[in-house]
Design a protein around this nucleic acid. Structure first.
Length: 596
RNA sequence: AUCCUGGUAGCUCAAUUGGAUAGAGCAACAGCCUUCUAAGCUGUAGGUUGGGGGUUCGAGUCCCCCCCAGGAUGCCA
């Protein structure tokens, strides 16, 4: 018998299996390297007497590239054949004849290692990039199904600070990735524009409000009021009940209170749009909790009819303890609704509208229970698509507390990034003088550093906010990527070598070139993986390594001044590197620099 | 108290999801700018993967027990 805990986890298991479907549903992975893999698999099948699917699953990529491109481990065979794995590997390596496109087969210990022919591989990958350009890495595995992504979703009563950056850029990256995977993406900014906190704000504005200051900088001013009223409420708890009273009037459509609300909302959205614009982020839909007052009545009716909820201490609750999900509160004692109630309505309405294949909520991990409750309630309401809703959670930026007033505004971070980049740029006046728009370049540099600092760690990790860490320009940072990109642009401008695919693909002898070429082949797989796992950091790690391989090659393999056959071959490789680098950086949300 | 996440080099993080000798960056030290961007490159040094058991050919990764940190746990969102 399953314990409640396991039943609670069942939803997660289902989600993972649907991901695996996504992973294996494509036989045609539009990528040439699969061809080599297939040859190896069919070659092995003749020798080891295993079904091809099993062999495919067992085949790995060696940790160190000098061992080969594919490896077949013989541990499992050792059980069947009752022989040491290293002996089996040796026999297999001997029995395998010539495999098309594979230049060497050798056994190292318990593995049979395969190396793809350099020239053939180079030709395959470089011509594919040359043909596909910005479309390299795209696939149609999404077959135009709809994915709804709910991200950024700031709370209007609270400031847009550094903590909100995560949802915004993770969501934006996933949007780009899913579009590249052939999905139709609907991006929704679901504003926190309803709830008790507006009661608090109205209260504060009635007490201390100043219309002029509000117009000047609505976000910062509302924030100041919010902090002030929270501090006051600590000494005088009756303010909370007054705020609840005001919110109740809002839900009852009291026009006087709604007037305040409308003003706060409109001014805030205007300011948000400026910030999104600067980040280069846009949404298909601006929505908000306030939009669901009518639809919510329908859902509440259904919950009542299905007898899902019960009264408790004057409030309406759904007891989810048997699923290890505590108790979900849907209506307060005073009859007003909660975040969760509105989310149920919003989810249902979205499914009616979009019939999504998946819906992603990019929201902090501190709301994990909230989403588990939400998905469970949808399931209890008989919504089969509940298992297609996914909470893409992420760790907290520590050191930001709205109520205590200890926050860093995103805008200030962007400004500081720009300032520091500008200072750095001025240390090389020769380069600096060639920039047509230094301020814009500096802004892109700052933003690249910020995006990368945030996206490069795995989503789930918390991190402490640190100016110097986020705005560091050396080492593993967004600037390392921009630098590689701009350098290749420099080669293209200055070498005098034209870009062509009529090159001799056998000219890449250096080990730096071989590594770089092999790394390029992995890009489409990484895009897919980042999508499957909702993990932008995979893309970051890949791009960092790509830039590293380039930088190593760059110092050894010149283009300018070399004999033309070599120069043209190298130009093609570096251009391809720039293309792939740029494709990935755009997914992360970076604008590309040709000079810096 | 219960549940969820994390814990890897002095610091910040990787590790192709159970595979081969655990890798990068920062900080430190030693080198490289008359040649396409030095925001770069080359090298040195840095480890009992929090601790202890277990599962197996094989564990940083899976299971159990502790320790530490963060978060969540009905009238916020």
């Amino acid at each position: 018998m399953r314990t409640p805990k396991e039943r609670g986890n069942l939803g997660v298991v289902e989600l993972i299996s649907s991901d695996e479907q996504l992973a294996t549903s494509n036989d045609l992975w539009g990528f040439q390297v699969t061809k080599f893999k297939k040859n190896i698999i069919s070659g092995l099948a003749k020798v080891v007497n295993l079904p091809e699917e099993n062999i495919e699953r067992m085949l790995e990529i060696p940790t160190e590239s000098n061992r080969g491109d594919f490896a077949f481990p013989c541990f499992q065979l050792s059980k069947i054949r009752h022989q040491p794995p290293s002996e089996i590997a040796m026999t297999i390596a001997k029995e395998l004849g010539k495999i098309e496109g594979i230049s060497s087969v050798e056994n190292i210990g318990p593995y049979v290692n395969f190396r793809v022919d350099n020239t053939i591989l180079t030709k395959e990958i470089l011509s594919e990039i040359y043909q596909k350009k910005e479309k390299f890495g795209e696939t149609d595995i999404g077959s135009n199904q709809t994915i709804v992504i709910d991200y950024s979703s700031p709370n209007i009563a609270k400031p847009f600070h550094v903590g909100h950056l995560r949802s915004t850029i993770i969501g934006n990256c996933l949007k780009n990735v899913y579009q590249a995977l052939g999905y139709k993406v609907i991006s929704i900014n679901y504003l926190g524009d309803w709830g008790k906190q507006f009661g608090l704000l109205v209260l504060a504005f009635q007490k201390w409000g100043d219309k002029e200051k509000l117009k000047e900088d609505p976000l910062k001013y509302l924030y100041k009021l919010y902090v002030k009223v929270n501090q006051a409420a600590e000494e005088d708890p009756s303010l909370h009940s007054k705020a609840r009273e005001l919110f109740k009037r809002m839900e009852n459509k009291d026009s006087e209170i709604l007037e305040y609300w409308r003003k706060f909302r409109a001014l805030s959205i205007k300011k948000y749009e400026e910030i999104y614009n600067r980040l280069g982020i846009s949404f298909d839909v601006y929505s908000g909790e306030s939009q669901y007052n009518e639809y919510m009545k329908k859902i509440i009716g259904e919950i009542k009819d299905k007898k899902l909820w019960q009264s408790s201490q004057g409030a309406k609750i759904i007891d989810l303890q048997e699923y290890n999900l505590n108790i979900a509160l849907l209506k307060k004692e005073d009859g007003t609704t909660l975040y969760l109630t509105r989310d149920i309505a919003a989810a249902d309405e979205r499914y009616q509208k979009y019939h999504f294949h998946k819906m992603l909520y990019v929201v902090g991990t501190d709301q994990k229970l909230h989403f588990e409750q939400l998905f469970k309630i949808l399931e209890l309401l008989g919504r089969k698509w509940a298992s297609h809703c996914i909470h893409v959670d992420f760790g907290r930026v520590q050191g930001m507390s709205t109520r205590k007033g200890k926050v860093i505004f995103l805008e200030d971070l962007l400004d500081e990034g720009q300032k520091r980049a500008l200072e750095k740029m001025k240390t090389n006046l020769e380069k600096f003088s060639q920039l047509s728009n230094a301020k814009l370049t500096a802004d892109i540099c700052g933003l690249s550093a910020i995006i990368f600092a945030d996206l490069s760690n795995k989503r789930i990790k918390n991190y402490e906010f640190d100016w110097n860490k986020i705005l560091n320009f050396e080492g593993d940072t967004g600037l390392y990527l921009q630098n590689a990109h701009a350098r290749i642009a420099g080669i293209m401008r200055k070498s005098g070598i034209e870009l062509t695919d009529r090159i001799d693909y056998s000219l890449f002898k250096e080990k730096e070139a071989v590594s770089l070429i092999r790394w390029l082949t992995g890009y489409p797989e990484i895009v897919k993986l980042a999508g499957e796992k909702y993990e932008p950091s995979f893309l970051c790690t890949y791009l960092l390594e790509l830039a590293r391989y380039f930088h190593k090659a760059y110092h050894l393999m010149r283009v300018k001044g070399e004999v033309s056959t070599i120069a043209r071959a190298r130009m093609n490789l570096f251009w391809a590197t720039k293309q792939v680098l740029g494709n990935g950086m755009k997914f992360l949300g970076m604008k590309l620099l040709e000079r810096m």
